[in-house]
């Protein structure tokens, strides 16, 4: 069953003013439970506005959003409960840390849910382990941590609410390559372990290609496509025209294909490229023999 569904979702900023702008235009979307979705689109494509609708931070100008079968905004009192179902990690989430200790900060969300202390404690320990925050750090001030650690504590704060859907807006931006791989790896582990739905918003097609099972592309406030990576990267030239940076490796193999190398498959990760190359070279060798 679809965990997230939108019907003709439209959102207009500053309606009735000279600054009027349609940020999300008639989006119909259905995301199944347990999916790992990469969300891409250039700045201003509407992807940030879209995700803020999914947990009721923004109210659609028209159309509707259904989470787990429940229509949002029908009963405003239910919004808070829906926010517990759809966890949203904003870009640079470390800027939302505020508690005296790491432990208390991760506890903020679960506490707002009204859980028992034991349950909160269990969740903190579990999520801290998942994001690689050692228990020695629990009593430290979050402001004393390194940049990467802060980021992971902030993500743990949302994960600890055990939302059915976890949305992360650019969780790796500004980190060095190692920090980036670490966080993305942990998010993937979380997805594997919890079998929850994850939406990863990213500018980096490389990251999306590496991790996502489905890709959602937003362009000019509209949903351009929602499909498997293979089918999305088949449209590499259209994506480039939208100003999206297709992975380098995809571009290389597109060009090889155009040169008559007969690639025949969509390439978007290095590992896949390696195996494909080996296969192609083998085929060539066999043909020679």
């Amino acid at each position: 069953m679809a965990i997230i569904r939108t019907e003709n979702l439209t959102y207009v900023y500053g309606d009735g003013t000279p600054f009027r702008k349609v940020a999300v235009d008639n989006v119909n979307l259905s995301i199944d439970e347990g999916e790992f979705v990469g969300v891409i689109g250039h700045t201003g494509s509407g992807k940030s506005t879209l995700i803020q609708h999914l947990n009721g931070l923004l109210q659609p100008t028209s159309g509707s959003v259904y989470i787990d079968g429940e229509k949002l905004w029908e009963d405003k009192k239910r919004l808070r409960d829906i926010r517990f179902k759809v966890g949203l990690v904003f870009q640079y989430p470390e800027y939302q840390l505020f508690e005296e200790t790491v432990y208390k900060d991760i506890a903020f969300g679960p506490k707002n849910m009204g859980l028992s202390d034991d349950e909160i404690d269990r969740r903190i320990r579990e999520t801290a382990r998942m994001v690689g925050i050692k228990e020695e750090l629990f009593d430290k001030s979050p402001f004393e941590l390194s940049g990467g650690q802060k980021r992971r504590v902030a993500i743990a704060g949302v994960m600890a609410m055990e939302p059915k859907v976890l949305i992360l807006d650019e969780p790796a931006s500004g980190l060095d390559p190692k920090g980036r791989d670490k966080i993305l790896g942990q998010i993937r582990e979380y997805h594997k372990e919890k079998k929850n739905t994850v939406l990863l918003v990213s500018h980096s097609m490389e990251d999306v290609a590496k991790h996502a099972g489905k890709i959602l592309v937003m362009n000019n406030a509209s949903l351009y496509c929602y499909d498997t990576p293979v089918n999305v990267f088949a449209k590499a030239s259209e994506l480039s025209a939208m100003g999206l940076a297709v992975p380098q490796i995809t571009r290389v193999f597109k060009r090889l294909d155009q040169m008559g190398c007969n690639i025949g498959e969509e390439v978007y990760t290095v590992d896949f490229a390696k195996n494909l190359m080996l296969k192609l070279l083998n085929r060539n060798n066999n043909m020679e023999e």
């Binding site: 803020q52 947990n55 931070l57 808070r80 926010r83 517990f84 966890g87 949203l88 990690v89 904003f90 989430p93 800027y95 939302q96 903020f108 969300g109 707002n112 849910m113 704060g157 949302v158 609410m161």
Partner: peptide, 9 residues
């Protein structure tokens, strides 16, 4: 928004 998303009332 971020704190609301964490259930801040």
């Amino acid at each position: 928004s971020a704190q609301k998303a964490r259930g801040a009332d």
